[in-house]
C-alpha cells in the first residue's frame, strides 16, 4: 500500500510542475514525470512475490510468472509517450520561432 502511495506522490509532483510552471520546457518535463508515475503504478499492480520474468524456459515451472498483460500494455504506453513528447517539442520550437520566448504568459501579449 505504501508503494502505491509513493507512486501517487510522484504523480502529484508532475501535476504541480504542469500547473505551476510557466516555461514550456518545464511543462514538458512535468508531462514526462506523470508518464513515469503511471507506468510504474501499472507494473506494480502486476507484480507477484518471488515471481520470475515472463519468458518461458525448459527447466522451470510455469505458474510463478509475474502478470504479463500489464507489461504489454505499458510497452504500448511508452511508445505513445514518445510520440506525444516529440509533437510537444515540435510545437514548442514553433512557438519560440514565432514569439521569441518560452514563457506562456508573454505569448498572449506579443500578438504575432
Amino acid at each position: 500500500m505504501s508503494l502505491y502511495f509513493l507512486c501517487l506522490i510522484l504523480f502529484c509532483i508532475g501535476l504541480y510542475c504542469v500547473l505551476r510552471k510557466r516555461n514550456i520546457i518545464k511543462i514538458i518535463v512535468g508531462v514526462g514525470i506523470i508518464e513515469y508515475a503511471v507506468n510504474l503504478l501499472l507494473i506494480l499492480i502486476g507484480y507477484r512475490q518471488n515471481g520470475r520474468a515472463p519468458i518461458s524456459a525448459n527447466d522451470q515451472e510455469i505458474l510463478n510468472m509475474v502478470d504479463p498483460l500489464p507489461q504489454a500494455m505499458v510497452l504500448t504506453t511508452i511508445v505513445i509517450g514518445l510520440a506525444v513528447m516529440v509533437i510537444l517539442v515540435a510545437l514548442a520550437l514553433r512557438i519560440y520561432e514565432k514569439h521569441g520566448t518560452f514563457d506562456i504568459t508573454k505569448i498572449r501579449r506579443l500578438k504575432g
Binding site: 516529440v86 517539442v89 515540435a90 520550437l93 514553433r94 519560440y96 520561432e97
Partner: peptide, 13 residues
C-alpha cells in the same frame, strides 16, 4: 527523420 526535422528547424532559425 523526426530528429532531422527538429534540428533543421533550429538551424534555419
Amino acid at each position: 527523420i523526426t530528429f532531422l526535422a527538429l534540428v533543421l528547424l533550429t538551424g534555419k532559425r
